[in-house]
Nucleic acid binder design. Structure first.
Lengths: 340, 340
DNA sequence: CTGAAAGCGCTAACAA
DNA sequence: TTGTTAGCGCTTTCAG
């Protein structure tokens, strides 16, 4: 049973259709300048014998393999997934496939992986979800193929980079809160050294100002964890005065931690205080009660955009620099119009 | 700046080393029967001119592309990623790369994707995380290349299939509880029609029996959600009598829901009741307080095993049927020896 | 409009 | 031990 299935070549089609090899090739590629009838016949013959072009041979000749690689360094975690899926979704209609490539923070390993992809003649590379430690990333020139960054940055400002618009997302969150009538909006978030933290914080401040919500404003920075969210909520409320009437959390996890604190202390959501998260990590946001209103970074779209940019690059168009993609607001149950 | 980087062929190396093309080829492939000195020279020349073999040409000739595809239908969700990562980790040392391929439950799309992979001449395919609706999956014979299932099953019992050993995992959980001195262990889990639910439930019963823990035993089936876990915990405890002293939950989410109920009702974990989950979804298990003891399905290892099986298949060895890989116990803080 | 022939970059007999 | 040659399956001038 292990007989290697006979592989059908263009030659077989030619024989079946009674034409030459080159004619078949033309027919397959929709090449103009040939009898409509012949083409039909060839196509039918091809179908009949079950021909499927060998992309390897095709690529060898054309010099383009219709494949790209996505290299991540976080073991394909929560953020990489939707990006990879979006990338694949964008590219696959164009017959281009994506190679998975994970280099767990090991620079040497990453180099080897990239070499492997290069040997496979990928037409492009997207780097994603890498630590922000600015490790050196080979440039498109060194590599000889276009590259793009998605959801992470390299040390080279020239390379096209797709990032979520954290600031806009934060504004969205706060504007939502403001529109609901909240006036004392606090912000609890992750560690300061994250660029996302800074941008979201900036967006928060902008929206507070623009909303003419007075001068109340507090940004607490902690860690990206529920425990930290809990602690920050304590800091916010334990004082007893100057309490917020709404919280904008820098992540859904932080929001969840805060919600826990509030519940433990008899502060009800959204009656007493509204809370909004960031990430729209569905399994988290849908699981809490009340369900969490939050900001979605549209990572799927970001992956797709990366694919799109890569394709443009591959066509020879130029693109460079950072592009920020809008976040969206997902309203659930944890925010409500301020009563009274 | 967009000049297509000159591509270095074996020819260039030959010229540089002053030997023939075939000699270079031999040298590169570690082919025996050639002067050690010549080989050195060739290798050095290759490095010098920056040669990297074109795997496409190589594959075209050899008939094997050193690539495999992984096709999932769940948009690369939480379970797929560790599997994909494990697969890649296992394969990449052998120079084989993995194509990502997502077919969101659309059968036609899936067909097209597979055709695309076939055209790229992948050497094998792994199917993962597909709905259990037994949709037809093409056989290895139809495809002409080996396939394996990982974390999901096809409609063909012959194809090699890697699954976590749910039953053993459940036993592990219950044995842990028993060894801690618990005697009234309840099981709350997902919908009955999941095979995993049935197997875990069976493992639960076996362990209860083996543990000589008396005839206490309750299995409640609900949904895979926190809300459902909460409800089932209520059903368990609201009765007022016949309460369990430990809970084995079918998923970490369910466990978390149950913990919520217990906490709300002043039942403390692990002092009053121990609770153990299933999945070791770290971000979930580590986030709750107390941190959740749980069962890990070792999905990474499962992905690696799938890669291994595939490689054996590709070598012509035969393998078939279901193989179940052991789960492991991750002890955290939600289980404790029964005091008294 | 169709076919013959020359490769894409590499490997594997076969000669030398 | 090394070089020559004939392809892998496909595309693309260039003649016919």
């Amino acid at each position: 049973m292990k007989l290697p299935k006979k592989i059908i070549t263009i030659r077989d089609v030619a024989k079946a259709a009674g034409v030459s090899i080159s004619t078949v090739s033309k027919a397959m590629n929709g090449n103009p300048g040939m009898g409509e009838e012949t083409r039909k016949r060839v196509l039918k013959a091809a179908k009949a014998v079950g021909f499927r072009r060998n992309d390897l041979a095709h690529a060898l000749h054309r010099g383009t393999s219709k494949t790209v690689g996505i290299v991540s360094s976080d073991n394909f975690g929560r953020f990489t997934m939707p990006i990879a899926a979006g990338l694949e979704m964008e590219l696959s209609p164009h017959q281009i496939s994506v190679f998975l490539c994970n280099a767990t923070d090991d620079v040497e390993l990453e180099k080897r992986h990239i070499a492997q992809l290069l040997a496979k003649r990928v037409d492009g590379l997207v780097f994603t979800a890498r630590r922000l430690d600015k490790r050196h990333t080979p440039s498109a020139d060194e590599l000889g193929i276009p590259i793009v960054f998605a959801f992470s940055q390299g040390d080279n400002a020239e390379v096209p980079t797709l990032l979520p618009d954290d600031e806009q997302g934060a504004r969205l969150a706060v504007e939502h809160l403001v529109s609901l009538g909240h006036r004392r909006i606090a912000h609890i978030t992750g560690p300061q050294h994250f660029e996302a933290v800074q941008r979201r914080s900036a967006g928060y401040r902008t929206a507070i100002t623009k909303g003419r919500v007075g001068d109340y404003g507090q940004t607490l920075m902690g860690r990206w964890s529920e425990a930290s969210g809990y602690d920050m909520a304590r800091d916010l409320f334990a004082a007893g005065r100057d309490r917020p009437d709404a919280i904008f959390a820098g992540s859904d996890q932080i929001a969840r931690g805060a919600m826990e604190y509030l519940r433990e202390h008899g502060i009800s959501i959204p009656q007493d205080v509204s809370i909004i998260g960031f990430d729209n990590w569905e399994v988290m946001a849908e699981a809490v009660r009340p369900k969490l209103t939050t900001i979605d970074m549209n990572l799927n779209a970001l992956g797709a955009a990366a694919g799109n940019t890569l394709m443009r690059l591959m066509k020879g168009e130029i693109a460079k620099g950072i592009e920020r993609l809008p976040c969206s607001l997902i309203v659930r149950e944890s925010t409500r119009s301020r009563t009274q």
